[in-house]
């Protein structure tokens, strides 16, 4: 087996593992009871699943120019994902869409101003 074959097999494994991680994330989105819990699932495929798939793509393309673009995709995704997830998590906590009965420790609720208009779930 030549080096090219090894790279192709590794790429195939990476692609399947990445797709599997994405599927697990979708399962999490569907099954978890509240939004903050679901967001843990949401940030996951965009990190490891995507990184693994990009790695598989890089192993398959084997071109320096393409590698630069792939690194950019990974960096952009890793910089932007936390911003989005933080904004959504913060908005949902403040809007009271949290299953407080599922929390074992809650350091935040008592420090936030209570918004009387928000629907308590």
């Amino acid at each position: 087996m030549s080096l090219v074959d090894v790279a192709d097999v590794a790429a195939g494994v990476c692609l399947v593992v990445g797709a599997l991680l994405t599927l697990i994330a979708a399962i999490g989105i569907l099954r978890f009871p509240d939004l903050l819990t679901r967001m843990h699932s949401a940030t996951k495929p965009q990190v490891l699943g995507l990184l693994v798939i990009l790695l598989g793509l890089a192993l398959r393309l084997r071109e320096p120019a393409a590698l630069g673009l792939l690194v950019m995709v990974a960096v952009f995704q890793m910089v932007t994902t936390p911003i989005g997830s933080h904004m959504v998590g913060r908005a949902s906590f403040r809007a009271g869409q949290v299953r407080r009965d599922l929390l074992v420790v809650d350091d935040l609720s008592h420090t936030l101003p209570v918004d009387p208009t928000s629907p308590e779930k």
Partner: peptide, 25 residues
Amino acid sequence: VVVASVQVSWTTLQLRREPRNAVIE
């Protein structure tokens, strides 16, 4: 990232168990 991904995946796939979350400072 790798270790935590495996942990979260495991939590996700245990369909019958509700996770016990926390908000910490």
